[in-house]
Amino acid sequence: MLFTRARLSIDTALREWMDEQWDWLVEKLDMGDLSEHAIIEPTEEWFPEPWGATREAVESLFGRVVEYAEVDPARLELALIEQQEEMPPAIVKKDDKVLLPLEITELRDPTVVVAILARKLALLRLMDAGLDLNRDDLPLLMDLACVVLGFGIFNANAAVPQVPR
């Protein structure tokens, strides 16, 4: 056969879920016209500060991601923690602050740090929009929200091949 038919590598049910949630996310995240939003890239243009596993470098990176996620930095506090036996919560609400726990073992790769922080901030944006946290599809929704918010390159590069997380 000279030409092959266009096909997708996801099944119809998953595609329909993504189509439905995409529209919902664009609305809930108040994204409007997506062509008016930037796609964040792992370049010096977006992240000009030098990287090192230091508090200063992490705080700079954190500030960039918070800015690009359009979240008020005054609400947030980054909490660098030791590696936990169980995965720490994505975010912790404490009084009028939102803590974002980040294990220091994740600091080896700044692109992974961006992916983790973007996922946490996507969750916060969705919580602000009234997301039901008991949804079974919450982890997938957080990943999809990262794409809608322009961070998808980082999350895709940090993703696993076949097992949804």
């Binding site: 998808g152 091949p161 076949q162």
Partner: peptide, 9 residues
Amino acid sequence: MVWPMYGYA
């Protein structure tokens, strides 16, 4: 999400 889902997204 897995890679094919990211591709579609």
